[in-house]
Design a protein around this nucleic acid. Structure first.
Length: 435
RNA sequence: GCGGUUAUAGUUCAGUGGCAGAACGCCGGUCUGUGGCACCGGAUGUCGUGGGUUCGACCCCCACUAGCCGCCCCA
């Protein structure tokens, strides 16, 4: 009776070579760019106290109210309390928690932190949407005296993101920006919006009727064509901003203009997390289908205080790494396919008695920095050639003759050239092949 | 959470109420220290899972599971 096979659970997936190479490329590029802007890496736990997300992200958001993986962590001793824990659905709350916990603001400096890691939301899987997905994000926060509230921080972050996308050669993106108001003027706007919706909501789609109750801001996001004329008549966030927020947003836009960063002001752009204030933004890409948001973010000037910390305004973003990779794959598919990723050489022992000596030679070559695929002495020579041709650029024959003479036969798969190389010259000879 | 759609060999996919198929890949041979090419041969599989209808189901029906697409949401 065969055992039933166990498969990856719904919404999770294995990333395999050669795709993982693209992931590494994306991640290392992000690290390089972030370093250039003087960011440092932070790694926070993948699970946290449930309260962190309830208070930070917002009890009423979809993420907290229906998408979190939450469980009761049982107590194992009388002294230990049971605790509700949650797999992180996003990383900003965790970073801010760490900022507070380690009193990073006490340095008086701006904290510029980036992270790369898995996040978890229990959503219906779809293209570009998984239950375990990966985000690459960064946060800039600190005491006001460090300049954390400056519009320059917003503009610098957006400029950095366009540089990252350029570095990855991602084309065809659109940057939308908006200001959703400060912690004090946003509630006023939401109230005004509720009021304005009351007489017209009956004519809108069912989703909007629900949103009008739960989260009126999301009505602005509605894509139903029939609702558009109604939405146009609703008050705009921009009109209810206080003077400071207006000036802040204008300064962000002005800095972007001077840098030549292309963007679209979108007064209907809202975010799904409660902590966002003032500047919000989103980069979208047409090739992604329904899940077209490549990355999103914004300011969260009050988040630290919501979590019991000191005043520490900040701004951050999260890139959907899965979507970034999808976009790159789509772009690569349009272009010529990439050459296969091959080892420098395939070392073919000819006979099992040569297996161990071959391992010793492979060790020598690998320690010299060469990428070597070691074959198997039980293979017939033809099989060694066939296998080597799939895995490497050249093949080293290691038979009795070579063992005796210390002179190896090296054949280049690309041009068929075969040479005899003494062991002490092998490294140089193997490295000289063009890639 | 809702709607649509799909599930057959390692992969991409045909297929018919009555013996399970192709291409590519894989393994072997022609070819015993020389690959790609060619020719010859071979193995594929609970036809997603579980029920039902039927003399008989890969095919029809139901349920479930999973993928994809859309809604929702967001990265």
């Amino acid at each position: 009776m065969a055992e039933k096979i166990i498969r990856a659970v719904r919404g999770t997936r294995d990333l395999l070579p050669p795709e993982t190479e693209l992931w590494n490329h994306v991640e290392s590029t992000a690290r390089r760019i972030f370093t250039r802007y003087n960011f440092g890496e932070i790694r926070t736990p993948i699970f946290e106290d449930t309260q962190l997300f309830a208070r930070g992200v917002g009890e009423e958001t979809d993420i907290v109210s229906k998408e979190m993986y939450t469980w009761e962590d049982r107590s194992r001793a009388q002294s230990e309390k049971a605790q509700s824990l949650t797999l992180r659905p996003e990383n900003t709350a965790g970073v801010v928690r760490a900022y507070i916990e380690h009193q990073l603001g006490e340095s008086g400096l701006l904290q510029k932190l980036y992270y790369i890691g898995p996040q978890f939301r229990r959503e219906r899987p779809q293209k570009g949407r998984y239950r375990q997905f990966f985000q690459i994000g960064a946060e800039v926060m600190g005491p006001q005296s460090a300049g954390s509230e400056s519009p320059l921080r917003d503009a610098e972050m957006l400029e950095m993101l366009t540089s990252l996308l350029d570095e990855l050669a991602i084309t065809g993106w659109t940057l939308n920006i908006n200001s959703v108001g400060s912690a004090s003027d946003r509630p006023l706007y939401v109230e005004a919006l509720r009021k304005a919706l009351q007489p017209v909501i009956g004519r809108m789609c069912v989703d909007c009727q629900r949103r009008a109750e739960t989260n009126p801001l999301r009505v602005l996001d509605c894509k139903v064509p029939e609702d558009q004329p109604v939405i146009e008549t609703l008050p705009r966030i921009a009109d209810s901003l206080d003077d400071a927020s207006k000036a802040h947003f204008a300064a962000v836009c002005a800095a972007l203009d001077i840098c030549g960063v292309p963007y679209q002001r979108n007064h209907r752009l809202v975010r799904g997390l409660d902590y966002y204030t003032r500047t919000t933004f989103e980069f979208t890409h047409g090739g992604l289908g329904a899940q077209n948001a490549l990355l999103g973010g914004g300011r969260y000037d009050g988040l630290s205080e919501m979590l019991g910390g000191p005043k520490a305004p900040g701004i951050g973003f999260a890139i959907g790494a899965d979507r970034l990779v999808l976009t790159l794959q789509a772009q690569q598919a349009e272009q010529a396919s990439l050459p296969p990723d091959l080892a420098d050489a395939y070392l073919a022992p000819m006979g099992v008695v040569l297996d161990a000596p071959a391992l010793s030679l492979a060790r020598e070559l690998r320690r010299a920095g060469l990428r070597i695929d070691l074959g198997d002495g039980s293979f017939r020579l033809k099989k060694s050639f066939e296998t080597g041709n799939k895995l490497a650029r050249q093949i080293i024959l290691f038979g009795e003759d070579e063992q005796q003479s210390g002179i190896f036969t090296v054949k280049n798969f690309a041009n068929g050239e075969q040479t005899k190389v003494a062991r002490e010259h092998l490294v140089t000879a193997l490295k000289s092949i063009e890639k």
